[in-house]
Computed example of a mutant assay.
Amino acid sequence: MTEQIVWLNAPGDITQFHVEDHRCEPPGDGEIRIRHEAIGTNFLDVYHRKGLYPMPSYPSVIGAEAAGMVDDVGPGVSMFKRGDRVAYAGPPIGAYRAMRNIAAERAIKLPDTVSAKTAAGSLLKGMTAYMLLKKIYNVRAGTRVLIHAAAGGLGSILVRWARSLDATVIGTVGSPEKAALAASYGADHLIVGRGADIVAEVKRLTNGRGVDVAYDGIGGDTLLKSIRSVRPFGMAVTIGQAAGAIPPVPVEELRPGKALCHPSIMAWCADVDQYREAALVAVQAMETGIVSQIGAEYRLADVAKAHEEMESGRSTGSILLIP
């Protein structure tokens, strides 16, 4: 039996991808083989492709989440059977393929109410949102939250989840069209336009106080704006660099008592118990409608086009690869 697989030859641009047919190996002890129905993409994949987070060796397969059906079960596995609908996210990397053998403990059964496409586009982002909103900073009723890229894949889940906790959400978006989307997700206030004075607007919206916590996946010079938007003894959380590397931030910017946190969902998920806790909570959230909308779908062979769209900043929601 063969499958289609996407190899990354070396760190670099989209020309480093090549697609070929590959022989499927039977699942090993404690493993299941999943026939992917949908593969989720994340900006994490771009970091892996470019080598910001290098792979152990090359050629390699990237991709951190997917969903589909159990195609075969290896020795010692009793919790799954052929035909079960499952999803997974986090390490080990390697989802850009039509079929995959993976440790059974990394797979999560999907309820009938959650489609494979929804799970593939929302599981890792949902787990990240859970980590950010409940583990890194305990967001609850009355918490004032700043969420950048509020119409994006992770941003949309953060907005929906924070509002479900009765937090007040201030979102930033790049266009009126994205503002309409973020408003539909429940954002209380929106700062629109790449040239907007984020700090001044946040201070205006919070009567000069600032937000309790800011979630920044933009990077570049936006992180300093996020720190300045946080109240004294609040927290800024940096979770990505979509706009490029982050310049050095003077420690004086953290006065008086602001916290700066740089968490990793992949590090969090390396612990199986933490992973399963976050994954199960994320699936439960999907059942209530806390999901990332599907912004685009590409054939697995068109992975380069998917990465181009992801990096363009045009997309809203999640981009899927379909084997």
Rank of each mutant, 00 (worst) to 15 (best):
E3D: 04
Q4T: 14
I5N: 03
P11G: 01
I14C: 04
V19G: 01
D21W: 03
H22C: 10
R23M: 10
P27H: 02
D29Q: 12
A38S: 15
G40A: 11
G51Y: 10
M55F: 07
S57E: 15
P59Y: 13
I62M: 12
E65T: 12
A66V: 05
G68E: 09
G76Q: 04
R82Y: 00
Y88T: 09
G94F: 03
A95Q: 01
M99C: 13
M99R: 13
R100P: 00
N101F: 03
I102D: 02
R106A: 03
L110S: 09
L110K: 09
V114T: 06
A120Q: 11
L123R: 07
L132V: 08
K134Y: 10
K135M: 14
R140F: 00
G142S: 12
V145G: 06
H148V: 12
A150H: 09
G152I: 12
G153T: 10
L154N: 05
L154G: 04
R160I: 00
R163A: 01
S164Y: 02
A167S: 08
T168C: 07
G171M: 08
G171I: 08
S175I: 07
A183C: 04
Y185M: 05
A187E: 03
A187F: 06
V192D: 05
G195P: 00
D197L: 08
I198W: 03
V199C: 05
V199R: 12
A200V: 00
V202F: 04
K203N: 07
R204S: 14
N207L: 11
R209K: 14
V213F: 02
V230K: 08
P232T: 09
Q241R: 12
I246A: 09
P248F: 09
P250E: 11
L260A: 07
C261M: 14
C261D: 10
C261E: 15
S264W: 02
M266V: 11
C269Q: 11
C269R: 00
Y275D: 04
E277K: 08
A279P: 02
Q284L: 02
T288Y: 02
V291Q: 02
Q293G: 15
G295L: 07
L300A: 10
H307C: 11
E311Q: 15
E311V: 13
T316N: 13
T316D: 12
G317F: 08
L321S: 10
